[in-house]
Structures are given as structure tokens and as C-alpha cells.
Design a protein around this nucleic acid. Structure first.
Lengths: 250, 250
DNA sequence: ACAATAGTGTCTGTAAGACATTATTCC
DNA sequence: GGAATAATGTCTTACAGACACTATTGT
């Protein structure tokens, strides 16, 4: 067997069959009650005209930085102004099957990004070709991006259960009802308002009260709601488990 | 911004600063009641004399296949004879910080392997330089492998909670006591025998009875134990949660 | 007035953890 | 006999889910 050190000792980068490393980003947000993913339109072959996850080559930077850079470029958000501070970014999985890109060997490190509701990337900016698409309509993506998106969604749904991730989808101050909307549209099912309310407040460190309320009630009636901000918990205990699906088990 | 397709259209692999892609394997097993990881001794610089996780370059194969190949090479197990069938392998995380390898940019896809107790790789084989080390003694590894190992251990501990992964550490037929030993030494704390017993049997699909028992009782006394094999569940419901640590939450 | 929503109260079934108990085996 | 272990039983507390109910707002 050829081990790493002996290989590298005699390694000439210019002879070796090249492998390209990219990052792809599954960026999720909630717009008007619908879970959406950021997609770009491909102009060139292969997969011309199809949609794909935003991504690009890794430069002289960490993988995390590359993912954040791609996200910022495509959304038009600018670093350094705090706009990206509330974006949660985590590594998802790496995809490297030979043939996933027909031109060459490409190993892609996929990231998952969670953002509060953002404006549509404005035409005229660098990011004009990117837009938010409801996840239900994001099909037939280029490369193996259907799989990447599916893995990202499953990760997101799972992380809502045992982390305070849902707070990354709402504004800095939010109501319990808004939080319930997040769970509802990420999990794809309505949750019982009363039980959800009691449960959220019973998890230590999930949310903390601001002492204030919304200035108005709901659009279609209802009292003013108390405002909360994210607490200091990094894990929810006890967890908020999804309604049991027996078919998820086997 | 330079997008993927325009980049690739004008891409000449021989000009581009090369990035190497490797796989590293965190292979875990339990030997005489201790959780052990497979390490190799490095002969050459950098990190000569230090220990490292087994790993190597990805060839014309999937990332999963590369990880399985590395695992097989280092343990001396041979594919095709069923020896590898009971090895559970899953992708862990990808490490690509610039500078993690002093010689060049190396992006490493780490894998996690779970195996039942295996013999020490025999001297004389290709794998003579690999050996099992108790995880508590696996420190000061080469590259960023301390971090990789730590991430792998946390993943393993977490996966014991909600998947039947523990059955990958024991023989095809096992007792509830053996399963409890797995949880105990991976989590690093003893579990209450009675409660554990009742709980394991109450999770649908975790274990199924073989109808048989061990031929003898325990070494220091005790009745013969019933033998079980792994059930068909892929997720444990309800989960077997670790004893609550408040300090894990924040 | 009416509909919608926020928030609370109550009840039931399930599960976790602490602990006790019985039975079986090795030494 | 004595120690260790397998397996089961009991009790208490906590939590999930179903549901009812009150209070407050917008239209």
C-alpha cells in the first residue's frame, strides 16, 4: 500500500490527475410561511438552463470561509456590516462520486445555511441570477444537487428537534407563534399551538423574555403576543421531537 | 464573481494550484472492555514518529470506497470474505484548513468506522504498522487528527443514543449485558443493569431474540443470559439518552 | 358580533430513573 | 455458602399529546 508520506515525498502536483474541491451551499430561509432554498440558474453546459445550488471553488481560505463567501456573494449581503452575523452555517456532507461532474473529478463540500427572511437578491447586483425557491419546487437540480438538498432538509428537520436552530429563521425578537410557524413549515405539518407554547417555555435556555410585546395583535385578530429572544442553550433538553412517524424508524 | 462553469470552461488542471483529497478513518472497536481507535505510526516527516489516523489518497473510486479500502488495508481484513460485512462505515466531516498539512493544501474527508472486536493487525502483513490504542491514550496525533478523533468520538456517543449502532460493536449474537458494556465504555460511565435491560427490550426492533442462551454463566457467577441479534430498526424510538449532563447543554 | 390568536389548565398514557427482589450460576 | 449477574417488579416523577377554556385583539 502506498501511504501518505511516501506518496507526498515523490509527489508532483503537475503530474497528478487533478481533483477540484468546491463548496456548495444549501441556504434555507422562510418567506411568507414557506421554506425556501437559494438556487442559481446555470448558463453553460453541462446542465445549462437547469437550476443548481450556489457554489464555487475553494480558494486560499478555510472551507467554512469559502461557504460563507459563496453565501454572501449570491445573496448580496456584505460582510462586516453585521448582516451575516445571524446566519447559521454548518458543514453538511461531502460528495465526491466519480462522474458527478462530467468534466472532471470534483469533490464538493456541502454546507447548510439558515437565515432569517431575506430580500430577494436584487437585479443588477452580482447575485442577480440567484433567487429563493420553495423547497417543494426545487427539483431536477444540476449535478447531484437533488441529493444534497434532500440531505440538507433532513439535517435541518432533525436539528430543529434538539437545537435552538429555529431561532436562526426568525428576527432577533420573536413571538412563540412565529417560532411555531418555523417548526411547522420546516417539518411540513401544523403543530398544536397550546402544547407547543408550553413546551418551548419549559425548555431551559431556549428562549428568554424581553418583557415586551408586539405592538398589534395578529392580522386576523388575537391579543398582542409576548416577545422573546434566543436564550443561551446550545442543546434543547428536553428535545422537541417530531410527531412520531413509524415509517421513519425502519 | 467567478462561477463554476466559466471557471471550468477555461480550466487547465496542470496550471491550477493543486489540492489533494484524502480520506482519514476513525476506526473504533472495543477490546477487553476498552474503546480503542486504530492508529498508524508515521515514519517520515512531517510528524515523524507521531501517531496518526490511517488514511490515504482518493483514487478513481467513491469516497466511501476509499474509506473502506483504507480500513481494510490497515486492519488486514480482506474484502469478499464477509469479514468486512459487519463493519459500519459512515462519513464524519471534512477538514480542509490551509496549513493543516505543511506541505500542500490537503482536504481530508474523515470517516467513522465501527467494528466488533478484531485481532491486532499481524506483523508481517501490509498492516503491521497499525494497531489499536485505547482512546484515552490517543493524544498528540499528527496533523489535526486530535480534532478529528474528538469529533468522531462525539459522533459515536451521540449515535448510540438514537440508532442501533451499538450492535456493530458486538458479535452477531450477543447478550443484553454485552450491549450494556458497549454503552458503558463508549459513554464512559456505568449504566444501571436493570433499567438498561428493560429499556433495550422495550424499544421495538432494537434486538430480537434467538431463543438461545449462553452456554455458561458469567466468569464470576450469574445465570446464563439470553442471546439476541440485531433487529430491523434503523432508529431507536424511544431513544436511549445519555444520563443528563447539564454542562452539555450550554 | 365574530373570528382568530395568545396563553393557561387539566387529564391520560408513556417513559425514565431509583431501588428492591428473585433466580441462577461460578468459585 | 457467598458473590456476581440476569431478569423482573414497584414506585415516583417528568413529559407528550389531546383537549378544553379564558382573554384579548382585529375586522
Amino acid at each position: 500500500m502506498e501511504d501518505q508520506e511516501s506518496f507526498l515525498a515523490g509527489y508532483d502536483p503537475r503530474k497528478y490527475p487533478s481533483v477540484a474541491v468546491t463548496v456548495d451551499v444549501v441556504a434555507l430561509t422562510i418567506r411568507t410561511g414557506t421554506l425556501c432554498v437559494l438556487l442559481v440558474e446555470r448558463g453553460a453546459q453541462p446542465f445549462a438552463g437547469q437550476r443548481a445550488l450556489p457554489g464555487g471553488f475553494v480558494k486560499s481560505e478555510t472551507l467554512d470561509d469559502a461557504a460563507l463567501r459563496e453565501f454572501a456573494e449570491e445573496t448580496g449581503l456584505t460582510p462586516g456590516r453585521g448582516e451575516l452575523d445571524r446566519v447559521h452555517l454548518e458543514q453538511l456532507k461531502t460528495y465526491g462520486n466519480p462522474g458527478r461532474d462530467p468534466r472532471m473529478r470534483v469533490v464538493s463540500v456541502a454546507y447548510l445555511a439558515f437565515a432569517p427572511s431575506l430580500p430577494e437578491p436584487t437585479a443588477g447586483s452580482d447575485a442577480a441570477r440567484a433567487y429563493w425557491v420553495p423547497v417543494d419546487e426545487a427539483k431536477d437540480l444540476a449535478f447531484d444537487h437533488d441529493d444534497v438538498l434532500a440531505d440538507g432538509l433532513e439535517r435541518a428537520r432533525s436539528k430543529l428537534e434538539y437545537t435552538p436552530l429555529a431561532t436562526a429563521f426568525v428576527a432577533e425578537e420573536f413571538t412563540v407563534g412565529e417560532l411555531r410557524q418555523v417548526y411547522g413549515c420546516v417539518w411540513g405539518e401544523e403543530l398544536h399551538a397550546g402544547n407547543f407554547h408550553r413546551k418551548v417555555l419549559s425548555v431551559p435556555g431556549f428562549v428568554e423574555s424581553t418583557g415586551r410585546t408586539t405592538s398589534r395583535g395578529g392580522e386576523r385578530g388575537g391579543p398582542k403576543a409576548k416577545l422573546y429572544r434566543a436564550g443561551d442553550a446550545t442543546l434543547l433538553h428536553p428535545a422537541l421531537l417530531r410527531p412520531t412517524r413509524e415509517d421513519r424508524v425502519r
